[in-house]
């Protein structure tokens, strides 16, 4: 069996983009609200279902853009509602972060099984997106699909947009301040509730977009969010939970380890591809144990790196 090297790399980039989208949401919520949000995975699922349903009613060429937009909006609204009903009252009552984690696990379970009930009663338990994977270019043995051409640019665009938000807008700076120290931020007159809502919208929306892409990649069922969630956590862990740039690196690293590295291990050591998640979880645990601050230092950001590259080439 020959290894499809370029195909493997392309798959790593595609899946890595999705993990990055999810990981950014995890990092954002951990930084601003201090919650390890297990319900994040269910937002991915909801996004996937919304995208699948949209593609049943709206046809090419508008189907994918509208699917992406609506799968941004619906999970964002749902997580806002959940925050108002569950997380905010709990935080106000002084729940420890562990209690919040258990509560988010409960929310995740509630959402997942509600989805099960809704989808089985509508006979939609596993559905496929109407958009099918098509190969557009081939590079050697690798295929660039229509999904690749959408997912990677959308991820990069949202990363750049968020980078701009954090560095150049007032809300973004306030968000970083809240992440650093909530009481201090409140004392300087930052509207913490507004920042919190903004964070939920960003993280929920990005999770939904990831779900929309994931629904094209595989079948959709209520479990996909849970399966992909721990990858998002891994991306966030590798990035160090507080670094935006680190999360991007982490997302692609997890994508790389699940596809390219797993393929290589499979090729040379004959270990079944079934153990793919083990690699990710092992990566996550080893980072938690040996380098809990993550891969990337906090003050590195895309703008600085671009500036460095620009200066280097300018000489």
């Amino acid at each position: 069996m020959e290894i499809l090297l370029i195909d493997s790399i392309l798959r790593s980039i595609l899946v890595g983009s999705l993990f990055t989208l999810i990981g950014i949401g995890v990092t954002q919520t951990v930084a601003v609200t201090k919650i390890f949000n297990f319900a994040h995975g269910e937002l991915v699922t909801i996004g996937a279902y919304v995208a699948c349903l949209i593609t049943k009613f709206i046809y090419y060429p508008l189907n994918l853009p509208i699917a992406i937009i609506s799968s941004f909006i619906v999970p964002a609204l749902i997580i806002l509602l959940i925050d108002e009903v569950v997380f905010k009252p709990l935080t106000r009552k002084g729940a420890t972060s562990l209690m919040l984690m258990v509560a988010s696990f409960a929310v995740s379970l509630g959402l997942r099984y509600s989805l099960y009930i809704i989808t089985t009663s509508q006979r939609l338990l596993t559905i496929m997106s109407e958009i099918s994977l098509r190969t557009i270019y081939t590079i050697g043995d690798g295929r660039i699909t229509n999904l690749f051409l959408w997912a990677v640019p959308v991820t990069l665009a949202s990363v750049l947009l968020l980078e701009f938000l954090f560095l150049s807008t007032k809300s973004g700076k306030a968000m970083r301040a809240v992440a650093e120290n909530v009481s201090l931020a409140r004392a300087t007159g930052i509207n913490v509730d507004y920042i919190r809502r903004l964070t939920w919208i960003i993280s929920g929306g990005l999770a939904g977009i990831a779900g929309a892409f994931w629904s094209i990649y595989t079948q959709t069922n209520p479990e996909i969010g849970w399966v992909i969630l721990l990858r998002g956590f891994a991306a966030s862990t590798v990035g160090g939970y507080y670094s935006f740039f680190g999360t991007i690196v982490g997302g692609y690293l997890v994508g790389l380890s699940e596809n390219l590295i797993m393929d290589l291990i499979n090729r040379f050591f004959g270990i079944s591809i079934m153990y793919k998640p083990v690699l990710t979880f092992a990566l996550m645990i080893s980072f938690l144990l040996f380098k809990p601050t993550g891969l990337v230092l906090e003050d590195v950001n895309l703008a600085k790196i671009l500036k460095k590259i620009y200066l280097y080439w300018g000489k």
Binding site: S97, F233, T237, M274, F281, M284
Partner: peptide
């Protein structure tokens, strides 16, 4: 051993991931 190094949520996530690793490995 991880419990010596990690606290609270981080320990929780570590053990959760360890449980998943065990499940996947033993299934094989």
């Amino acid at each position: 051993f991880p419990a010596l190094k990690l606290k609270g949520d981080y320990l929780g996530i570590t053990l959760l991931a360890a449980g998943e690793i065990f499940r996947i490995v033993i299934r094989g």
